[in-house]
């Protein structure tokens, strides 16, 4: 497991790019030059610093964040798997292209994944296939309502 990136090792420019540009990347011909002007640095510095942050894993990317369920059909799903079988079942689940997240959690329902497909029929078929191949029930818990106002995430430096 990689050590966490310590906030003390980040420069003010890195912090600012991390905290203040989780939204609002300009939709202009030269977004990084626009940011550079706001920050009082050069365009090259903005591009290089973002590339560094990406390389060290502090950011996973710079770009649009899509609302998955507005593009296709998706659901959170849970399974209760005996510990001895967890590895095997998790591998089956992760093997599906439609599964983009798969977590082990501490609960009787110990395997939680998100499946996304172009439409509801495809999604239902995928969940059925997972049940058949794993021999375990899949409990689908699709989102009914989204209450979160996504303004990015305030990183708290300690």
């Amino acid at each position: 497991m990689r050590q966490p990136i310590e906030s003390t090792t980040l420069t003010p420019l890195q912090r600012s790019l991390l905290n203040d540009y989780q939204q609002g990347l300009p939709l202009s011909a030269t977004p990084f030059a626009d940011m550079a002007e706001q920050l009082g640095v050069s365009e090259q510095q903005v591009c290089d610093t973002l590339a560094q942050l990406q390389q060290q894993g502090a950011i996973s990317r710079v770009g649009p964040v899509f609302r998955t369920h507005s593009i296709g059909a998706s659901t959170l799903a849970a399974m209760a798997v005996e510990p001895a079988q967890l590895e095997a079942v998790a591998a089956i689940v992760s093997g599906f292209d439609e599964v983009n997240h798969n977590y082990e959690r501490e609960h009787a329902l110990n395997l939680w994944f998100v499946a996304t497909a172009p439409d509801a029929q495809h999604l239902a078929r995928t969940l059925r296939q997972i049940e058949q191949r794993s021999g375990h029930e899949v409990i689908a818990l699709p989102m009914l309502e989204d209450y979160h106002i996504d303004l990015g995430f305030e990183l708290q430096w300690t």
Binding site: L18, Y21, Q22, L25, V62, P64, V65, R67, D150, L155
Partner: peptide, 9 residues
């Protein structure tokens, strides 16, 4: 469809 555009921490 797009929630936001920016750095994804």
């Amino acid at each position: 469809i797009i929630r936001r555009i920016g750095a994804v921490p």
